[in-house]
Simulated scan of single mutants.
Amino acid sequence: MKKFLVFMFSMFSVQFSVMAEELSVKNQIEFANGQWNKAFNAGDVDSLKQLYKNDATLSPGNGAILKGRDAVAQLFQSFVDNGVTNHQIETDAIYSTDDQITQVGYWHADGKDSNGEKISFGGVLSLVLVKTEDGSWLIQSHIWNMQP
């Protein structure tokens, strides 16, 4: 009986450890999404730029691949300048290793059409975060599409 209880306790400990690690990854994604949305919705492109690695890649669903923080910042500045606001990210799936987290989810935002009327739009995104040498997480790759 004692061996059985030790076995059950050890199994519980392993399961709890895995659950805590998953929770930690989920919390990291929620934190990263919160930082991203906060910076974008405030129009703070400089803070948004700092969430990306220097050599980050981004594809905004038009067949192009932008490379580097400056190119990423220029794209987001154009969105801010054109009135895109209220950006939100909803996570669908998370895949992780010790030094990389990949998120697949949905994004939504508000803007204005050519007549100045308010519109909402969104799509699917894939976001890859990598752990840096100092232990922080930065975006290495960001890809999205837009659904009509």
Rank of each mutant, 00 (worst) to 15 (best):
H142R: 07
T132H: 04
S114F: 07
K49V: 06
V84D: 03
H87M: 12
S17V: 05
Q28I: 09
K53P: 08
E117N: 14
A39V: 08
S114Y: 15
N37P: 06
F76S: 04
L138W: 05
M11W: 09
Q35A: 09
L58H: 10
W144R: 15
W36M: 02
D98F: 08
N27A: 15
N33G: 05
F31T: 15
R69S: 04
D46K: 10
L66V: 11
S47Y: 01
F16D: 07
G122Q: 06
V104Q: 15
L75T: 03
M8W: 10
D92E: 14
A109Y: 01
D134N: 02
G105Y: 07
M8R: 12
L23K: 14
W137D: 04
V80L: 09
V18K: 11
I139N: 10
G34R: 07
F31C: 01
V45K: 00
Q147Y: 12
L75C: 14
T91D: 06
N82R: 11
G105L: 08
Q147I: 12
R69V: 08
S120N: 07
L138K: 02
S141R: 11
E22D: 11
S141C: 02
W36P: 06
A71C: 10
F7E: 15
N145F: 02
G111T: 02
Q77T: 13
F79A: 11
P148C: 10
D134Y: 00
D110Q: 12
E90I: 15
Q35L: 00
G111K: 05
I139Q: 08
D110Y: 08
S17P: 09
D113G: 01
K3G: 13
F4A: 00
K49H: 03
E90K: 15
I143E: 06
G68L: 02
A73S: 03
Q147M: 08
V72K: 02
L5S: 13
D110H: 09
